[in-house]
Computed example of a mutant assay.
Amino acid sequence: MANWSDPRTTAAPYATGAGTRTDAYDAGLRSYMLSVYNYMTSGVLLTGIVALLFSWGGMESPAAQIMMGGGILKWIIVLSPLAVVFAMSFGQNRMSTATLQMLYWGFAVLMGLSLSTIFLVYSGTSIAGAFFATAAGFAGLSLFGYTTKKDLSAFGTFLIMGVVGLLVASVINIFLQSGVMNLIISIAGVLIFAGLTAYDTQKIKSMYAHVAGTDMQGKVVILGALSLYLDFINMFLFILRLFGGNRE
């Protein structure tokens, strides 16, 4: 989940007439959420295309030569997406919507380069299966987050703490190389990012009332898409780790 500020604390609510929702408000909300999903889906597809092209040629591909060969270029590619996320999250108030758009597309490309090795490690069938399973799960969880009347904000802190725990456990397991711990991390990762999908969807939806018609709306659309993109990609990777078969 991207660490982006909540405009609900600074922006004025969208006027809906005596506190009631209007047809115009509902139409605006649908258009707003559709924009978020379009950005998110396009980013995921761009990442997949870049990853596939970068790994084209198998062990003779640029992905194999750079990402599996070590060297400083590998680490630049691996760490660059994180740098872009931090730049977008903490610089959003100083950046224009166009700048955030450019950074988002650049982030999707960098993620494609970084994730290209999955096409060298896992079979195409495994990748496709994990992708469609993630897509189905994401759609259901995001729909739940959009339609539920239950306030999911209480789960936010718990889920973010879970992400931190995953990172710590993953670093520890680099040294332990425990298969059991790897399985636990993968299962926990799927559950945590499944929860974040519903939580982030509800959060993005609730923000519309506070940014509609303001300069912040375009920025929130892009940052919301970034959050859902991260939820999708992480859930996909953990599902792939759980069920993916290695390329023979």
Rank of each mutant, 00 (worst) to 15 (best):
A83Y: 06
L228C: 01
D215T: 13
A108R: 01
G245I: 00
W4I: 09
A15R: 13
L45Q: 00
M181Q: 13
F158H: 07
L73D: 07
M102T: 09
G218M: 04
Y146R: 12
F193I: 06
A188P: 14
A64F: 10
S5E: 11
L141I: 02
H210I: 01
F107R: 09
L82T: 09
K149N: 14
L100Q: 08
V190C: 07
I187H: 02
I127N: 02
F238H: 09
R8L: 01
N246D: 03
G213H: 10
G112R: 00
F132Q: 07
G245A: 12
E248Y: 05
A135M: 04
S153I: 02
A194G: 15
V44I: 14
N38F: 03
S80W: 11
A130N: 11
M111H: 09
K203F: 12
N246L: 05
I185Q: 03
K74Q: 15
L103E: 06
R94I: 12
M59N: 07
S55Y: 06
G19Y: 00
I160E: 04
G245F: 01
M33F: 13
A188R: 00
G112P: 09
K203H: 12
F131N: 04
N93H: 13
L45R: 00
S178V: 08
M181N: 10
T22S: 14
G43M: 12
A225P: 02
V211G: 10
A188H: 05
L52C: 02
Q101W: 05
Y25K: 02
Q101K: 14
P81V: 00
P62S: 14
G140R: 00
L143S: 12
Q65G: 09
Y37P: 04
A198K: 12
A12N: 10
W56D: 03
S96G: 15
D151T: 11
Q92I: 01
S61Y: 04
I127Q: 02
G17Q: 07
S116V: 04
A198V: 10
F238M: 10
I239C: 06
T201F: 02
A51K: 06
K203C: 04
G145M: 07
S126L: 01
A212Q: 08
A136V: 15
G106L: 05
Q177M: 08
S5H: 09
A83V: 15
Y14D: 04
Y37L: 15
Y146G: 04
D200V: 04
L242F: 05
A15Y: 14
L115M: 11
M181W: 13
L52F: 13
L82S: 14
I127F: 01
L79C: 10
F86I: 11
Q92V: 08
V50M: 03
L82A: 15
S186E: 08
I192A: 00
S80A: 15
S42T: 14
Y32T: 13
A98L: 12
M216W: 13
L110A: 15
A51E: 02
L242I: 11
G137K: 04
L167W: 09
Y25M: 07
G19F: 01
Y208I: 03
Y32H: 10
Q217R: 05
G162W: 00
I76W: 05
R241W: 09
V44L: 10
L223H: 03
F238P: 00
N3K: 12
L53M: 11
